[in-house]
Amino acid sequence: MEQEHFFQCPHCWEDVSMLLDASIRSQTYIEDCEVCCNPIEISPTFEDGELIAFRSESIEQ
């Protein structure tokens, strides 16, 4: 089960969206911004399929 989540890129400050896998309670992974292509560490947390916490941090290259 995937959910679309909108947030601001910590590099370019543009609004971006990502599909998050709600079937995994807590996860951390790196994905590139769709606007500026810089890496972002994404950490969503779900409870009963609902997003309860979301963190996005820039990754220094």
Rank of each mutant, 00 (worst) to 15 (best):
V35T: 13
E41K: 09
E31V: 03
V35M: 13
H11G: 02
L19K: 13
A22D: 08
S23E: 11
S43F: 06
H5R: 08
L19R: 09
F54W: 12
I24W: 08
D15P: 13
F6S: 12
E47S: 13
M18D: 05
N38V: 02
D48H: 10
E50Y: 13
S58N: 06
D48Q: 14
L19S: 10
I40V: 09
E34F: 13
I59Q: 07
F46H: 08
S58G: 06
S56W: 06
L19W: 14
F46R: 00
T28R: 11
C37L: 01
E4Q: 13
H11W: 06
Q8V: 12
Q61K: 02
Q3C: 08
S23N: 10
F46D: 06
A53Y: 08
S26K: 10
Q3A: 08
C12M: 13
L51T: 05
L19N: 12
E14S: 14
W13R: 15
Y29V: 02
P44C: 05
E14N: 15
F46P: 06
S26I: 01
L20C: 07
F54N: 04
S26Y: 11
S56I: 02
W13C: 14
L19G: 14
S26E: 15
Q27Y: 09
S26M: 02
D32H: 04
Q8C: 07
E47P: 01
F7Y: 13
Q8D: 13
S17Y: 12
V16S: 04
D21Y: 07
S17N: 14
S56R: 15
L51V: 11
Q61L: 03
E2V: 14
F54L: 08
N38L: 10
